[in-house]
């Protein structure tokens, strides 16, 4: 799948798909091994947790067949570990496509999983978590242990989130990884585009380009519209410090910088890939459920 024929159209929206495993953990010595699979409308991740520690994960695009993507993500996370599905004590699905994952034992909502995952990734000081999915966006308050204390899910936030950025990158011929930084290269912040909905934003961007705006300006206008929209969602539930963002949006500095400015606070940083939060939370719930004696798949003897 690697050979790139020259002259082939570059796919600017394509972000890096990859897998990772820890060299420090010997899973064979682990007592409880669980997996979490997050099947989103744009991307899918599988995470393996051994005794409450992140051991391995994969991060890839969701294909047209979401159960298939879940399986592929899982296999990819297992790759090179010597572990098989049979070694898992429990597997949990989350995300938009969670009810459709054949090899998992149970499904848990993204709300619960992102709260839990963010607690691991950012630490116990996190009180507000924002997740922008491909289909909806969620603002979550959590306690020191990652338990959800309040949440608000906007079910109509669909277009203009993760997928919107990809469409935009493609339209402007800017790689998705550069969109955020490039949007910061403007001398003066342009007014935000009037809509973040993919369809409208696309035609608006086209006409702005035609009227002489450069790419940086158009991207700035789009990122700023996204930031506004997030702030308006957060308004209802309030932002308590510390504040963390999960998912792909967290990687876009064009949005996070503008958010920090509008909210007047800093967004936490993490060494983990922000896209794995949901799957990681799911795998951590697996750990807790196995300890509770719930749904244990195989004997731990």
């Amino acid at each position: 799948m690697s050979a790139q024929a020259s002259g082939e159209k570059k796919e600017f929206w394509r972000w890096k798909e990859y897998n990772w495993k820890s060299d420090e953990i010997d899973w064979r010595k682990g007592k409880i091994i669980t997996a979490g699979v997050d099947v989103g409308s744009v991307s899918s991740q599988a995470v393996i947790v051994v005794d409450d520690e992140l051991y391995a994960f994969s991060n890839q695009r969701t294909g047209s067949n979401s159960p298939g993507s879940a399986g592929k993500a899982m296999m990819w996370a297992l790759e090179g570990t010597g572990m098989t599905m049979d070694d898992l004590h429990y597997a949990i699905a989350t995300g938009y496509g969670r009810v459709n994952v054949p090899f998992t034992d149970r499904a848990i909502t993204e709300i619960a999983c992102h709260g839990r995952g963010a607690n691991y990734m950012y630490g116990g000081t996190v009180r507000t978590v924002l997740d922008m999915g491909g289909q909806d966006c969620k603002a979550i308050h959590t306690d020191a242990r990652g338990k959800v204390t309040r949440f608000l899910m906007n079910d109509k936030c669909a277009a203009g989130t993760g997928r919107g950025m990809e469409v935009f990158a493609d339209l402007l011929g800017v790689s998705i990884e550069e969109v955020g930084d490039m949007s910061l290269e403007v001398e003066k912040e342009p007014p935000p585009v009037s809509s973040t909905c993919v369809v409208f934003a696309k035609s608006e961007a086209t006409s702005l380009l035609r009227s002489g705006w450069d790419k940086e300006m158009v991207l700035a206008a789009y990122c700023s519209a996204m930031a506004h929209r997030i702030v308006s969602l957060l308004e209802r539930i309030g932002v308590e410090k510390d504040f963390a963002i999960t998912g792909g949006i967290a990687k876009n500095r064009g949005i996070t910088r503008r958010l920090e400015k509008e909210l007047g606070l800093e967004i936490l940083d993490t060494r983990y890939d922000t896209q794995i939060a949901g799957a990681l939370g799911a795998a951590l719930f697996g750990q807790a459920l196995v300890k509770k004696g719930k749904g244990r798949k195989k004997s731990l003897a």
Partner: peptide, 13 residues
Amino acid sequence: MKANYGYRDGSGD
């Protein structure tokens, strides 16, 4: 937990 279900659109919350 305070669970909020619903949406915000052009006409309101």
